[in-house]
Amino acid sequence: MPSSPSTGAVVSVLTGSYTPDSGGEGPGLAALRLDPTTGRLTYDDQVKPLPVSGASFLAAHPSLDVVYSTNETETGTVSAVARDGDGTLSPLGAPVSSGGTNPCHLTVHPGGKWLLTANYGSDTAPGTVAVHRLDADGRLLEPTDLVVHQGSGPVTGRQEGSHAHQVLVDPAGRFVLATDLGADAVFTYRLDPFTGRLERVAVNPMIAGSGPRHLAFAPGGELVLSADELSSTVTCHRYDAATGTLTALSSVPATTAEGVTNQPGGIVASPCGRFVWVTNRGADTVAAFRLAGTALEPVGEVPAGGTWPRGLTLAAGHLLVANQHSGTLAALRVLDDGTLDRPQPPLPASSVVCALAL
C-alpha cells in the first residue's frame, strides 16, 4: 500500500444515506469525487442527488453502469439506479419488495444475473435472504427465492431472533454466505444459476454472543475476517472452499478504547492480504490489524473523522469512512505498514452510512 501521495485520475464515489422517511436527514444517493493525490473529497456539482429512500448499502453491477441500493425501511424494498455517461443518476424501474423488513446489505452475483439481499428483520420478523432476477439491462425482475433464517443468541434485546446482516459470494463464485447477527451464525448456500434458487449447504456457528455483522475475504479466499458487533471483536476464520464452511482461528478486540460501549461496523481486507481495517462505533475510530499467518495483530487506531463510523470502503489508497451520526465522510490514507493517516477535514454528508467507489 502507498505511503507517499497517490497519483492518478479522480475517483467517482457514490454515497448512500438515511432519508427523512427512514429516520435520517440525508438525500439518498449523492455523487462525489476523490482526489487520490490529496485525499480531498468534493461533491460532483454536475450530478444531482437521487432521493432513494433509506439507501443504507450500495452495490455495483459487474458489467453494467447500474447500482443497486437497499431501501432500509419496515416495508423493505430494493432499487436499481442507472448512471449515464456524465454520471447522471436515474431510477431504472420502480423499487421492488426486498422480501423482508429493513434490508441492510446486497450484492450482485458475479455473473450479473442475480441480486442477493439480506433483510435484517425486526423484533417480530425474522431475518431473510432474497434473490431477484436481473434482465440484460440490469433491471430488477421477479423474486426467485426467499430463505428465512432461524436461530437466536444470548444477548438480550439483540438476539431474540435471527437478523441477517450481510450476503456475499465467495471468491470462487461457488457459495453464497449470509451472516446472521441474531443467530450467531453464517449460513452457506449454493445458488442455482438457472433458477435463482438457494440451497442451504451449511450453518456455521460463530462464538456465542459475538453477533457477526460483516465478513471480508482475504486474498486467496482461504481466510475470512469477521466484524463481530456484539462482542466488539475481529475474528479470523479458515474458509473451506470445497464445503463453504468456516472455522474460527483467532480473535482480538476491535478497539483499544476503554470505558465505551463499542460496536464494530464495516470491515475491509487489503488487496495485498497483509492488513485488515474495521470501523468502531462507540470508540469512533478505525482500527488497523496486521494478518500474521492466522493471527491478527493490532498496528494502530485513528479517529474516524466523525461519530458512529459505519460504512468502510477502500478507494485509490484511501479508506472512505461514513460517519452516520456526525454526518461526515472522511478519507484516510493507507500507509505501507497498514496504519492510517489522519484525514483532511471530512466532507459534510448528512446521515451518510455507506460509500461506493466506481
Rank of each mutant, 00 (worst) to 15 (best):
D45Y: 00
G317L: 13
N262D: 13
V13D: 03
L356F: 11
A241G: 15
D228F: 05
I267V: 15
N323G: 10
G24I: 06
P298W: 09
V234Q: 09
V10K: 00
G209Q: 04
G209Y: 13
T313S: 02
A30F: 05
A136S: 12
L198C: 08
D228H: 01
P309I: 03
L32V: 06
T42G: 02
V129Q: 03
D240L: 13
H149E: 02
G173V: 15
A94D: 04
L134P: 00
H237A: 12
M206S: 09
T256G: 07
R190Y: 14
E229W: 13
V268I: 15
P154N: 00
H132R: 11
M1K: 00
Q324E: 15
P205H: 03
W114G: 02
E258Y: 03
S53E: 01
V203P: 00
S90E: 05
T245K: 03
T124V: 11
P219E: 09
N262V: 10
L41Y: 06
D21Q: 07
V129C: 08
G338W: 09
S162Y: 08
V186H: 09
T285D: 07
Y239K: 09
C272F: 13
Y18S: 02
T285Y: 13
E258F: 05
V67G: 00
R83D: 01
W277E: 10
A227R: 04
A227Y: 07
L320D: 04
G39S: 06
T77N: 00
G151E: 01
S3V: 11
G306Y: 07
G327K: 03
G54Y: 07
D228W: 06
S98V: 09
G54H: 01
E142K: 03
L314I: 14
G8L: 10
G100P: 08
R200E: 15
G93C: 08
D336T: 13
T38H: 11
G221D: 13
P253I: 06
A185T: 06
G87P: 02
R174M: 14
Q159M: 06
L358S: 00
S63I: 06
G266I: 15
A242I: 15
L141V: 12
N119D: 08
R310E: 13
A164L: 11
R197S: 05
A55M: 01
K113A: 14
G23F: 12
T7G: 08
T247L: 14
T233R: 07
Q324I: 13
S351M: 09
T261N: 01
L225K: 09
R139C: 08
A304H: 03
G16S: 08
V321K: 04
G100Y: 14
L115R: 02
W114H: 04
Q324A: 12
A349E: 14
H109G: 04
G282I: 11
T128M: 06
H165R: 05
G85S: 02
G300V: 07
Y239S: 06
G23V: 09
T243C: 11
A242F: 15
P62Q: 12
E72D: 13
H61A: 05
T101E: 13
L168S: 06
S22A: 14
L146K: 10
Q166K: 07
P62T: 12
R83P: 02
A9G: 04
S326G: 10
T19W: 05
L106Q: 06
P62M: 15
T70Y: 10
L106V: 12
V201T: 14
G23N: 04
T313Q: 07
S251Q: 15
T128H: 04
